[in-house]
Amino acid sequence: MTRYLIRRLLSAFTVIAVVSLVTFLIFFALPSDPAVLACGKACTPDRIAAIHHSLGLDKNIFVQYADYVTGFFAGRTIGDGANAIHCAAPCLGISFHDDSNVWDTIWGRFPADLSLALGAAVVFMVVGVALGLAAAVRKGKLVDKFAVGLALFGISTPIYFSALVLQFFFVDKWQWLPAPNYTPITQDPAGWFQGLILPWAALVLGSMAYYTRLTRSTALDVMGEDYVRTARAKGLSRGKVILKHTLRSAITPIVTIFGMDFGALIGGSAIITETAFGIPGIGQLAVQSVLNVDLPVIMATSLFAATAVVLANVLVDVVYGIIDPRVRYA
């Protein structure tokens, strides 16, 4: 198990390294130039060159990449002369746009990002699976039709639309909730919770359906398995047969999907929800960085997303090993 984990972490590290290099190269293949943006209207070629120099963009790409990597592990000083800024390890650079330390920016946004992702993921996983299981058990009955209908509704409603509808009814019309916003949980737990209810709801509506459908179909498959029949033949109650013997197997493919979804959510895929409700997460930061042609932030958000997805997958493998003894020793 330990050796397996080490192997997985090494390959995860490789993936992240490749992502970082590719992002770097893509940035330089882009037609937009951060210097032009920074320079404004009255721009001269001299000035552009000066900005290029101050940003380090005049060096060879691979030298720049090497600087970036070294900086991450050992820290570095960016710029020269009076403008020099020290960036301690792990250094993700200094924003071209506002000279802020990118590492600090990412971690500053992480709590909001995690709050949004974790809350939504727990709800859509638990409720989605419960609904799917209920639908499978009562196949063809009312619960099944309701669950399948809700799933269809959730899948076919875009998040930006449901976000608007939720906000209109719960905040504007009925005034049951304050306007969604992000308050750190350490500051005001109740405010944190209230401010995130609608963003969570929007995400849950959009994602739960996949869990309902997947659980329903895998649970139906598992119910046809011989070992579920064995469980009944022992005289076990219906609840035990379903919650213990059926769910235990049906959960396996769900864990995979959940790992990927959760990794992506943390990595910033909740961008529409963040934007619709003004939650300062990583997704928004990523979009902003592209608009600003802000290389260090683009790099940082890409790396962050890659790390989140890759780590979530390693975690899935670990959980798999716990769920399925047949992969444990492989």
Partner: peptide
């Protein structure tokens, strides 16, 4: 049951 490999639950001892 016929075929004990499929009749025993793979995830429990």
């Amino acid at each position: 049951f016929q075929d004990p490999l499929s009749a025993l639950h793979p995830f429990f001892t």
